[in-house]
Design a binder for these strands. Structure first.
Length: 427
RNA sequence: GGAGACGUGGCUGAGUGGCUGAAAGCGGCAGUUUGCUAAAUUGUUGAGGAUCAAAAGUCUUCCACAGGUUCGAAUCCUGUCGUCUCCGCCA
């Protein structure tokens, strides 16, 4: 959420940012109007409050000195004030609610070094690693490979749940589990993250903190429960909110978390997109990286976090490229985002396997996550960052496709073999 | 699921209708003192909003949250949420 004062004082900059994000700017005119009204109403309301408080004290004194008539006269006066007050308070609440609603629907302002553009065609590649393998046979996709090997069963998953669900069996299930453990081990032992295992169900306040609400209600799986709970779409939600409503000590920053979790997404509006295989599922597993950082360090932390995620692909020997998303392609809360895209032979292209964002103080403001510097200075909002390190299902796909052999077997990357009980190949 | 207790500032903890944004202690910050460390001592120390060019100042709101009673609520009433204890149940 953008700061009220920031929007008021940087109206033109915010307007430009919204336009670059393909976001309608008419709400900013409404903003100016609401802002003016709000301040007027608060001024009037406070003035009446002051009178009331003052009169109440006088009444107290009059009652104690036995001047009942005068006290009664005053009481009548205050009763009048109270009516006006109620009216103003009502207005104030209404205006503030509208204002909040408006602000909570505004996306973050992109950093100035983010490429401006309408969509993903304006994304810009920042680096590339590895060389896609040349196959001397026609490479299959992960569905053909997995089903032939008996490690992937999409049909029965559809039977027991529905489309966009999958069952992994045998070495396939083991590979998934190996990847989770491998990723967590690297991030905790080599990259300094603290492992955390959060709840997979969260409340609405938490969903608001990381921007899923109010705008993206339909992307979630909601529980039929009077508490308004939902399944997490990513561990970013519970983990970033871990310190919500707290005041952290500057010396404890940055805080770096690595969290495994399943992720649940309704994928509303994506019908017909990536319908084959594991690419786009309603449920998938992910190891998520989250950082809480000092504002002045968040860009450096963002670079490091992205490199930490890339490191996993390097260790697995999977070719990838990293792109910086354009203003039109970025997520709602991000100020800057790098996507890491892994090479998929079957599609002869790079596909997203991680998205690493610096949200600056956008989420922190929503969840009231602040810190104090030494010297007792004023409280400031923490900067929050997150990125997949990595999406496990898509890594599973990448391994099958990149490590497939002519006979349909899958060679296991060496670094994973110890996680697979020494298994060198599947099939 | 049943019964009971409770929810106050960074922490502990006073406060049962006006003089309480809140005692006291701890912690934090600033200073003084003392070979160093430690201790002692003095002062200071919540958050949001409005006003203001800014600071200062002034005003206002906040004692889990939302309502209500009252001229006046941390204090009384109702609801919600949460925590703890005991019983039941269960992995």
């Amino acid at each position: 959420m953008l700061d009220l004062h920031f929007v008021r004082e940087n109206l033109d900059a915010v307007k430009a940012a919204l336009q670059n994000r393909n976001f309608p700017i008419d709400s900013l005119e409404k903003f100016v109007q609401l802002d003016t009204t709000r301040r007027r109403v608060i001024g009037e309301s406070d003035a009446i409050n002051q009178q009331r408080n003052h009169s109440s004290k006088e009444i107290g004194a009059l009652v104690q000195t036995g001047k009942k008539d005068e006290a009664d006269a005053k009481k009548a006066e205050v009763a009048d004030l109270k009516d006006k007050q109620n009216e103003l308070e009502h207005q104030r609440k209404k205006v503030e609610a509208e204002m909040n609603d408006l602000l909570s629907h505004l996306p973050n302002v992109p950093q100035t070094n983010v490429p401006v553009g309408a969509d993903e065609s304006a994304n810009s590649e920042v680096r590339r690693w590895g060389t896609p393998k040349e196959f001397d046979f026609e490479p299959k996709d992960h569905v053909d490979l997995g089903e032939a090997l008996g490690i992937l069963d999409l049909e029965r998953a559809t039977k027991i749940t529905g489309s966009r669900f999958a069952i992994l069996n045998g070495a396939g299930a083991r590979l998934e589990r190996a990847l989770v453990n491998f990723m967590l081990d690297i991030h905790t032992t080599e990259h300094g993250y603290t492992e955390t295992l959060p709840p997979f169900i969260v409340n609405r306040k938490t969903l608001f903190g990381t921007n899923q609400l109010p705008k993206f209600e339909d992307d979630l799986f909601h529980l039929k429960d009077e508490r308004g709970l939902a399944l997490i779409p990513t561990a970013e939600v519970p983990v970033t909110n871990y310190h919500a409503d707290e005041i952290l000590d500057a010396k404890d920053l940055p805080k770096c978390f690595a969290a495994y979790s399943p992720c649940f997404r309704s994928e509303a509006g994506s019908y017909g997109k990536d319908t084959r295989g594991l690419i786009r599922q309603h449920q998938f597993e992910k190891v998520e990286l989250v950082k809480l950082s000092l504002p002045e360090n968040s860009n450096d932390e963002h670079e490091k976090l992205t490199e930490n995620a890339e490191r996993i692909l390097q260790l697995l020997g999977l070719p990838y490229r990293t792109v910086v998303l354009s203003t039109g392609d970025m997520g709602f809360g991000a100020a800057k985002t790098y996507d890491i895209e892994v090479w998929l032979p079957s599609q002869n292209t790079f596909r997203e396997i991680s998205s690493c964002s610096n949200c600056e103080d956008f989420q922190a403001r929503r969840m009231n996550l602040r810190f104090r510097r030494a010297g007792g200075a004023k409280l400031e909002f923490v900067h929050t960052l997150n990125g997949s390190g990595l999406a496990v299902g898509r890594t599973w796909i990448a391994i099958l496709e990149n490590y497939q052999q002519a006979d349909g077997s899958i060679q296991i990357p060496e670094i994973l073999q110890s996680y697979m009980n020494g298994l060198e190949k599947i099939g």
